[in-house]
Design a protein around this nucleic acid. Structure first.
Lengths: 205, 205, 205, 205
DNA sequence: AATGAATGAGCATTCATTCAT
DNA sequence: CATGAATGAATGCTCATTCAT
């Protein structure tokens, strides 16, 4: 807010670097995931980060900004992971669908905490943040949809209702953080294989 | 926020004496669905019901009880709908899977508001309520799982990971209230047909 | 409040006769004694009496009236008991002091519950009630003081500070309900003997 | 209500930053003494301290803790005053009884406000606090009882019921804050003399 | 003689946030 | 970078009381 805010802290990426900032981001992620946006109190977040309430306000200008920063980073990372996966493969629809499902499952497993928030708490974003995140999310949706539509057009997928197919596949992947336990369940790679198989069946590959 | 708030009880004419309980349940359903458990304030619920805060406490002993009652009713109804659907069909796994998917989609469409709560807000139940609802939910899960396992055993379903198949199918159905808009999207029956088709593909029928 | 209030219910004695009224008075006595005026809720009083809240309002026009009625009856009874005790004895100061102490101890033991209230909760009376009860209490105080002053004047009591003596004796008697347990401690008669002995020592009889 | 409310902290000049805790304790003492635990609202306490409701919660975690802290401090001080008084005198029972009565009267007069609370409001303590304070109180009681029992054993006191004697003496001292008015009544030293004389008579010294 | 339904004011407490240092 | 102290608005809930029957 003062001179300090000209430093690297508040410069676009809403999650700042530095010890205090990192601890806060981690704590916020956990607590938002555990209790949801309204159930989480910034007091508890600061306490878990081992910092004072005022320190939190040094790094983030409000609860909403802290929350939005988390979500934005997470969804950005996810979209980038999808882009990267698609960049590394040809233009065969089945191959591309496999790649994006694999990227999605992988992300939901490896970053379970953020995913919990991203999947369930988006409605708590306000105004500007909501618009920006909504657009990002839609871009991910379009990645899926384009692949499926392309497969149908080429005759490689037999699928009468491509929009439903896409929703079903995304819903299945997005539900993973609700039940997945890394200590009890299969690893990310194996799980991805299984969801790829399911997705291919859903589109009638 | 959209259709829901127009169907609210607070529409000019006052609530007839003695019918406050119903108005409160309806208002609570809407507001919990819109804002989640922690985001909903009992003051707002009472206001939408057209009653005073104290009247809410005359009918329900706490916010948690009001919330739990809603969830319990909803999940009970859903399980009964599944049971009824399965009672009316033979023992062919494909037929049974179709029936339960159809019942699920139908419930999620017709009772979108409760479904939103039941699907997303269960974690906010405390103690006793959580235990009871957890058991009920698990019984619904078992209905799905038993059908799929049976189909695999009989060789009618080709499906290497039946637990994953079940999760995918349930996740897809449970996501419906998040996007479905009765004014824009297809009717319940048609939607059920589409999800039955998807489910049968997922299990490899 | 309506025609019913012309009956025997609200006619001076604030504690009405009749089943409901009695049950309420007993319950009120207990709960006011247990939790004090502000700690007691009329809901709990009605519940312990086995009646509805509205029934309480049939018999008593407010919490304050119910409370004041209890106190008034109790203090009236006490003053009458003192008067009666003094009427039955001669004019010897020691005899009279013994009589009034005996009457006081007896009342505090036999009507422990009311005494608890009368001793500790008088300050919660409002306006009119406070004035009336204050006067009554003072009349009891004067009974004590007159006896002691008389004894001093006659040379039967050797006592330099009669007001202090009176306060000490009353305080000792009034503290009885705070510790007395009828199942563990000596009976009322024996206890009265002991306090009479103490009182006579205090005034230097 | 009378002298107390004039000594309140809320007298025009605002509370200096960082000294809110003291102002709150003083205000709480006064208001708890005036209205009792349940009759006192923390809003009123904060208001009299010249602070906001939230500031009260910055310093004290709950109404109960605030209340218990006051009581504990007061009873601790009293027990220490008794200990100190007894440390400075020989082992003659009459001398010791005089010392402890003098300390008690002195405390009840000098710290009338806390004494009012400590004497009348202990029953409103919960759990842990109640246990701790109960033990402290009992230790004070034992100080009295041991002195009296010792006097009886040595033949210096003639007293058939030492427990009753102790109760009477304590009750008389504890009642002082209920009637004592520093502007109208004799000073602490003179009052202590009078109560010492009464106590010595009660035990038959 | 009593009830079920409702109310407005008040309760203790927690919230996100700000200020001064 | 970070803190301790403070705030106003809101929270879930209970209170004494009243209304209509």
């Amino acid at each position: 807010m003062t001179a300090a805010s000209e430093s690297s802290a508040h410069n676009g990426s809403a999650i700042p670097r530095g010890q205090g900032g990192d601890a806060l981001s981690i704590a916020a992620r956990e607590i938002f995931a555990e209790r949801g946006y309204h159930g989480a109190s910034i007091r508890d977040i600061a306490k878990r980060a081992g910092l004072s309430l005022s320190a939190l306000y040094y790094w983030h200008s409000s609860k909403q900004e802290l929350f939005a920063g988390l979500l934005e980073d997470s969804v950005n990372d996810y979209v980038q992971a999808c882009d990267a996966a698609l960049r590394d493969c040809g233009d065969d629809p089945a191959e591309r669908l496999s790649a994006i499902v694999r990227a999605t499952v992988d992300y939901r497993v490896r970053r379970r905490v953020e995913s919990t928030i991203a999947v369930r708490e988006i409605r708590n974003l306000e105004d500007e943040h909501a618009r920006r995140l909504g657009a990002l999310r839609e871009s991910a949706t379009r990645l899926f949809q384009d692949i499926i539509d392309d497969g149908v057009r080429r005759g490689e997928f037999r699928c009468e209702h491509p929009a439903e197919a896409r929703r079903a596949i995304q819903a299945a992947c997005n539900a993973i953080p609700q039940w997945y336990d890394p200590e009890r369940d299969v690893g990310a790679a194996e799980l991805a294989d299984r969801y790829v198989a399911i997705a291919l069946r859903v589109v009638g590959a």
